[in-house]
């Protein structure tokens, strides 16, 4: 159960990777740090301003969506058309900057923090199986977010336009879809999802400036699912979470941290394009 709930967080961060990759063909290595920043905004709302949990979530997601859009607009749009390498280096740089800035802000700093959740340390005992409410909550909220995202992409005009833009950017231009603005919104969406992941992760690892390194686990999750596949990211995240938990329990100390990569290597040997990898090749 712990594995599944941690896997949910991996899945959400991986989802952020995939959304941005599909839309703009860049890998955003700052995804983990966006999550960290989102968690700190949640901390501000929850602890410093004393807001209730749900308002905290909304606040953190909104602020991070704006941050994500600003990053796209200010940092990434000027380098549009540059080689992918340039863009990747910039996202790594953005991640460093965020980590640095967070430690400088009074009240955030380098300490570890915690936010209160409505899922107390209670435990449900269902027919002899012990279920921690905390982790059930994480799973339920991830499922809810995925449902909302599914409905958004499937039925809203903007959601379908986002899909269209990621499938064929040139044609999107021809249809009069404002491609750059759509890409900006995808960054916002992706950062908002990251903030949500950060809030879910907070009770498990606490909030600190290096919590973004969880991105290093979410990245194999995204690759495992087949980079560029939204359901793949979620399945990949869950697999890595569960494998990690099992490895921590049954295998000697230390295997837990490499388990994600072992799984990744094995899967890539069998299916080089990932579990849900797209078979259709992209047209040039």
């Amino acid at each position: 159960m712990a594995g599944v709930s941690l896997g949910c967080v991996y899945a959400l961060v991986a989802l952020g990777f995939v959304l941005i990759y599909k839309a703009t063909e860049t890998v955003n290595f700052a995804q983990g740090d966006l999550m960290m920043l989102g968690a700190f905004f949640a901390l501000t709302a929850s602890v410093m301003m004393g807001w209730p949990y749900w308002a905290t979530i909304l606040f953190a997601i909104t602020v991070m969506a704006v941050v994500g859009m600003l990053i796209e607009r200010i940092v990434l749009r000027p380098v549009l058309g540059q080689p992918a390498f340039t863009v990747v280096m910039i996202t790594i740089g953005v991640g460093y900057v965020m980590r640095g800035v967070v430690t400088m802000i009074p009240g955030w700093g380098t300490d570890t923090h915690q936010i209160a959740t409505p899922f107390a340390e209670a435990i449900w005992n269902v027919g002899g199986v012990v279920l921690p409410v905390q982790q059930l909550g994480v799973i339920a909220m991830t499922a809810a977010l995925c449902a909302v995202l599914y409905l958004f992409f499937r039925f809203s005009r903007l959601g379908v336009a986002m899909q269209a833009t990621s499938q064929n950017q040139l044609a999107a231009y021809y249809m009069g879809i404002p491609v750059r603005r759509v890409n900006m919104m995808i960054w916002g969406l992706s950062a908002g999802v990251a903030a949500f992941a950060g809030i879910l992760l907070a009770p498990a690892t606490f909030i600190h400036s290096n919590m973004g390194f969880i991105g290093l686990k979410a990245f194999p999750a995204a690759v495992l699912g087949g980079f560029g596949s939204v359901p793949g990211a979620i399945v990949g995240g869950l697999i890595i979470g569960v494998v990690e938990a099992l490895a921590g329990y049954y295998l000697p100390e230390g295997f837990k941290d490499v388990a994600a990569y072992v799984v990744l290597l094995v899967v890539l040997m069998v299916r080089p394009s990932g579990i849900f990898g797209e078979t259709a090749r992209k047209k040039v």
Binding site: R157, V160, A161, Q163, A164, Q167, N168, L170, A171, A172, Y174, M175, G176, I177, A280, K283
Partner: peptide
């Protein structure tokens, strides 16, 4: 309106969704 060379439909959207994208504006 522009009918691009090589058709350039949105491959993973349905026919109807493609048409709705044509009416995006």
């Amino acid at each position: 309106g522009h009918v691009p060379e090589g058709r350039e439909v949105f491959p993973l959207l349905t026919v109807e969704e493609n048409l709705r994208m044509g009416a995006y504006t």
